[in-house]
C-alpha cells in the first residue's frame, strides 16, 4: 500500500511540477475559458433576462473544452522522446499511473475553476447564495470530465487527429452527466426558484439532491471502470 502511495505521489508531482514550470496548458485553458464566456455573454446580450440560465451553460462549455485541453496534454507530453515506455517499464501498476494522471487533471481543472468561476459570476451578474453547493457540483463535474478524459487521452495518443478524436470520445460519454449537472447549476444560480423545483420549469424535473446523487454515481462508476480498463488502453 505504501508503495502504491509513493508511486502515485511521484507521478503526480512529476506532472504537476512539469506543468507549473513549463506552463504548457494552463494559460491556454484559462484564455480559452475566458473567450468562451465572453462570446456567450455577447451572444446573450439580446436576452438579458436569461443571464442566470446562460451563465451555467457558459460555465460548463468553458469547463468541458478547457478540460479537453488539459487531458490531451496528459499523455502527449509522455509521447515526446518515448517517455511513455519509461513510465510503462517502471515497476508501477497501470492503475496507479491512471490515478496519478487523473489527480493531475483534477488539480489543473480546479485551478481553472478558481479563475473562471468569478469571471462567469461577474460577466453574467449572478448571485450565489449557496457556495458549498456550487463548489460541490463543480468538483463532481470536474472528476467526471477528468476520469473519462484521462482514459481516452491514453487511447488517442498515437492518433494524428488526437484532439478531434478525444473531443468526440469524451463529449459523447459525458452527455448524460451534463443534463443533471446543468440542472444543478441552474438551481444554484437561482434560474429555477426552489419552490418550482420538480414542477418542470425550464423543462427540467427532479430535485437538487437527486441531480447531485446522479453525479456522484456517474463519477463512481466511471472512475472505477476507467481505472480497471486503463491497462488495456495503454498497452502497445
Amino acid at each position: 500500500m505504501r508503495y502504491f502511495w509513493l508511486s502515485l505521489k511521484a507521478i503526480f508531482i512529476k506532472d504537476i511540477v512539469t506543468e507549473l514550470r513549463a506552463k504548457q496548458v494552463l494559460p491556454t485553458m484559462i484564455v480559452l475559458g475566458m473567450l468562451i464566456v465572453w462570446v456567450l455573454r455577447m451572444a446573450s446580450e439580446a436576452v438579458l433576462q436569461s443571464e442566470a440560465v446562460i451563465g451555467p451553460v457558459a460555465l460548463w462549455i468553458a469547463f468541458l473544452f478547457a478540460g479537453l485541453l488539459a487531458q490531451e496534454r496528459s499523455f502527449a507530453t509522455e509521447q515526446r522522446q518515448d517517455c511513455i515506455y519509461a513510465l510503462l517499464l517502471a515497476p508501477v501498476d497501470e492503475g496507479t499511473i491512471y490515478l496519478a494522471k487523473l489527480f493531475v487533471n483534477v488539480v489543473l481543472l480546479c485551478i481553472f475553476e478558481i479563475i473562471i468561476v468569478p469571471v462567469v459570476i461577474v460577466a453574467f451578474r449572478l448571485n450565489i447564495n449557496n457556495w458549498p453547493a456550487l463548489i460541490g457540483v463543480l468538483l463532481l463535474g470536474n472528476i467526471a470530465i477528468s476520469s473519462v478524459g484521462t482514459l481516452f487521452s491514453a487511447i488517442v495518443q498515437l492518433s494524428r487527429a488526437r484532439g478531434a478524436l478525444l473531443s468526440i470520445l469524451v463529449l459523447v460519454i459525458l452527455m448524460p452527466m451534463m443534463i443533471p449537472a446543468t440542472f444543478a447549476l441552474l438551481l444554484v444560480f437561482g434560474a429555477i426558484p426552489p419552490e418550482m423545483t420538480g414542477t418542470g420549469a425550464l423543462a427540467f424535473v427532479g430535485t437538487f439532491g437527486s441531480a447531485v446523487g446522479f453525479m456522484i454515481a456517474f463519477d463512481a462508476v466511471f472512475v472505477v471502470a476507467c481505472w480497471l480498463l486503463f491497462g488495456f488502453a495503454i498497452k502497445e
Partner: peptide, 29 residues
Amino acid sequence: QRRARVCAVFAIIAFLDVPMVYISARYMQ
C-alpha cells in the same frame, strides 16, 4: 490488436453510459 483492444475498452465504457443516459434523461419532461 491495439485497435481491437482500444475499441473493446470504448465499447465497455459506452455500454456503462447507456443506463446513465436513461436515468439522466428523466430530468427532462
